[in-house]
């Protein structure tokens, strides 16, 4: 259902998202130069940027998780760092460490690769819990405390992390506290047959394409991202929709299939991302539709199935779907 303009409906227009629409369109265009398909995945990444959230991207190897994240980072003209997580990675390898400077006989803090605007953490679940825990403060508070000194991250600060499904060899389950800090967990699916044929066709004609990222042009600046985020904050959310969000999240805490329900941080994540999605669809208000659409990505990593449900072959997405079907849409 394509939204009509408010004026066309005979209603007074409220917010103009022309800028945001144009920026999102240009980012999509840039990504389409290299990525075939994965439209929903790209839209969720855009929502995350507008909602100021970190994203966990999960999928089997070889489905362009890392490539998409890298390309998205290139479309925004800000600092970009990539960290490859390995089993022997230490917290200081990520955050930085104090190094003794013989000239001045003082310790100087040497910033780690986390000090950037967009940080791509590749295969995040290859590092053990000790290293994962080092990300808690920076992901939530966008700051690092080292030797009693606080270092604030530059705005925007976005962590895009990729991971293979936990059943894969040599991976660790991420701590719940860390998972909760990701706005979305996006499950990247295999491309369809048509998309796969198109991928093969493109790479057959241009074999060097795999390595060449130069053709991707920056579309947004840091200031522009901040301005778009401010626009998103003005999206209207009716009290009925707020209550609907709360009902969906609260029901995860009472569901018999769940051992761990979603936190209030999940409610906030659902609210902020729904506002960004509404703006991305050129709407100045959030509908229950937005909430339903985003609920799986916001909640799937924040809930835990009971062992019995897990043994029955259930998935978090099944339970979320059931909760959504059960919760009455406010009308």
């Amino acid at each position: 259902m394509e939204p009509l303009e408010e004026a066309a409906l005979g209603l007074a227009p409220q917010t103009d998202f022309a800028d945001l629409q144009a920026a999102a369109g240009r980012i999509r265009e840039e990504l389409r130069k290299r990525i075939i398909g994965q439209e929903a995945f790209i839209d969720l990444l855009l929502v995350a940027i507008l909602a100021d959230g970190h994203v966990l991207i999960e999928g089997v190897p070889g489905i362009a998780k890392t490539l998409t994240a890298k390309l998205l980072a290139r479309t925004i003209d800000v600092g970009f760092n990539r960290i490859q997580f390995t089993p022997d990675l230490m917290p200081s390898d990520v955050l930085g460490t104090s190094v003794f400077h013989p000239g001045t006989a003082t310790f100087q803090f040497k910033q780690g690769p986390i000090f950037s605007n967009i940080v791509l953490i590749d295969e995040i679940n290859r590092a053990p819990a000790k290293t994962q825990a080092s990300l808690f403060e920076v992901m939530e508070e966008q700051q690092i405390t080292q030797d009693g000194v606080q270092y604030t991250m530059a705005d925007p600060f976005i962590v895009l992390a990729t991971q293979n499904p936990i059943e894969q060899e040599g991976t660790y389950r991420l701590p719940e506290a860390q998972l909760d800090r990701f706005l979305f967990k996006i499950l990247v699916q295999y491309p369809s047959l048509e998309e796969e044929v198109a991928i093969l066709g493109v790479h057959h004609n241009r074999p060097a394409l795999q390595r060449d990222l130069e053709e991707i042009q920056p579309v947004l600046t840091a200031e522009k991202v901040s301005a778009l985020r401010r626009q998103v904050q003005n999206v209207h959310v009716d009290a009925k929709v707020l209550e609907y969000i709360a009902q969906v999240v609260v029901q995860t805490r009472a569901n018999k299939s769940l051992y761990l329900g979603a936190s209030p941080r999940a409610s906030l994540a659902l609210l902020n991302s729904a506002k960004a999605l509404a703006a991305l669809r050129n709407r100045s208000f959030v509908t229950p539709e937005d909430v339903q659409e985003l609920a799986p990505s916001v909640l799937r990593h924040r809930i835990q199935l009971t062992p019995e449900r897990e043994m029955e072959g259930g998935t978090p997405d099944d339970v979320i779907k059931q909760i959504i079907q059960k919760t009455e849409v406010p009308r």
Binding site: L9, L11, A12, Q14, K240, V241, R283, F285
Partner: peptide, 17 residues
């Protein structure tokens, strides 16, 4: 139906005066 749905949504969820 699409049209009345959008009208309803603008008024009911959008808080249009």
């Amino acid at each position: 139906f699409e049209r009345v749905t959008q009208l309803f949504e603008y008024v009911w969820y959008g808080g249009s005066s």
